[in-house]
Amino acid sequence: MMSDLLNVQGLTLATPDKVLVEDLSFSIMTGERFGVIGESGSGKSLTSLAITGLLAPSIRPTGRVTLAGEEIIGAPEKRLVRMRGDAVATVFQEPLTALDPLMPLGRQIAGPVRRRLKRTGQDAGRAAVAREVQALLEQVRLPEPERLIRSYPHEVSGGQRQRVAIAMALACQPRLLIADEPTTALDVTTQAEIVRLITSLVEELGIALLFISHDLAVVGQVAERVMVMRDGRMIETGPAQQVLTRPADSYTRSLVAAARRFDEALEGQP
């Protein structure tokens, strides 16, 4: 229990007239890559918002969410602000809307960098921040960092935007990275690149990963352990290999079979 970075116990999320997530329990160890699979509306994104304490006020959480030893549910906003970035950072589905349209990309990355340097008591001067931003852009393998720093989100490609979003998340040096459908808005080739990038970066930096997706194949590539969700409940959990090749639950079996039929149909094409 002590080595768990994130521990969710009996998490229930409900609005006054509807239960959205019910009695969800799972945990992620330090450095572990954990996948959450589910169709839209299964409650996976809500779960990630609950972990960061960003739920809409109309949604009431009950249960326990412990991140890096601190209780999230019921914590005052002030403590949550400090936790976010330090303990957890998020990469979102649509990088175009996740970046401020009116701010150059370099400045958007510089924001979390400066906060982290200040938090850890390091030099947060202009030159130090610029150096870090440059290093982050190289880390996410973006070409021409000098040009990108001055570009606006609409001036670069979708894949590049998502790399910038990843750089922003990494700028916080979090212990847990939440990737909420980070490849859904991208084309297939770019998807594969982003998945490889995220996997290698979290491995390199020893960050735990919570990877949320409806795409079985993508989750299978990334995660060591997975959880399948449906209608706000956990259906099945276990090592990725086992769940995706020998699913125990009928819903998971139907998902896997559908994905397989889709793959076969694709391979049948010349």
Partner: peptide, 22 residues
């Protein structure tokens, strides 16, 4: 309601900074 506000909050930006910068 935009994602970049959520993104800024999730990376630990305070409300004051969000008002000023975003």
């Amino acid at each position: 309601g935009q994602d970049y506000i959520t993104a800024a909050r999730v990376s630990g930006t305070s409300w004051g900074a969000i008002v000023y910068w975003h």
